[in-house]
Amino acid sequence: MDNFKLRFYNNFIADERWRYIVNGLSVTIRVTFFAALIGIAIGFVVAIIRSTYDKTGHLKVPNFLCEIYLTLIRGTPVVVQLLIIYFIVFGTVKIDKAFVAIVAFGLNSGAYVAEIVRSGIMSIDDGQFEAGRSLGFNYVQTMVYIITPQAFKNILPALANEFIVLLKETSVAGYIALQDLTKGGDIIRGRTFDAFMPLLTVAIIYLVMVMGMTAGVTRLERRLRNSDH
């Protein structure tokens, strides 16, 4: 027992090492949150371009660019993308690492969000589209007022899952020496030569966050099922 107390003291209290965990957690949450926002923005734009092309054959060139983006992002590991953006794209400028991580994970997430949103848009009956157009709405207005609100409702669970994955994926941010939650725990391990406590603490924090988000998604799904409209 005394041994446990001593290890706890060494890992978290001495030299205020708990700060690595707390600060790391705040970085992880910030990066995840803003990357998710970027992912949603990119995802909706790409999805609308792609489904417009699917439905009407318009936007051929933008659709082609979107396809290149999707292929590149989904065809390479996120760590490699992160390293490329840090060392090559922003290689010559001094820049906040958290910003780089937000850009990299946002760009990555956007590709996955795009395909989720596109499946949502394509799942809406063509009659909805025709009803909107017949009232005099143009293509974009029909998308904004009629199609995407319905699509969004259908894809909310899949979208929430994507952000759970995103939260866990940000744990590779240590590759560019960004001190996120994982890196924070690893730094403590390096100082104390005690892997057990810091790494398990990190794991438990991720687990609690993921379980919280999952519980949120489950409740959301139930609410959406109940409201039939």
Binding site: D125, Q128, S134, L135, G136, N138, Q150
Partner: peptide, 20 residues
Amino acid sequence: INRHRQKMGMVFQHFNLFPH
């Protein structure tokens, strides 16, 4: 065409009300 469609109401076989 959007301007003209405003003056041409349409009713569909499957209603196509906006469910949301």
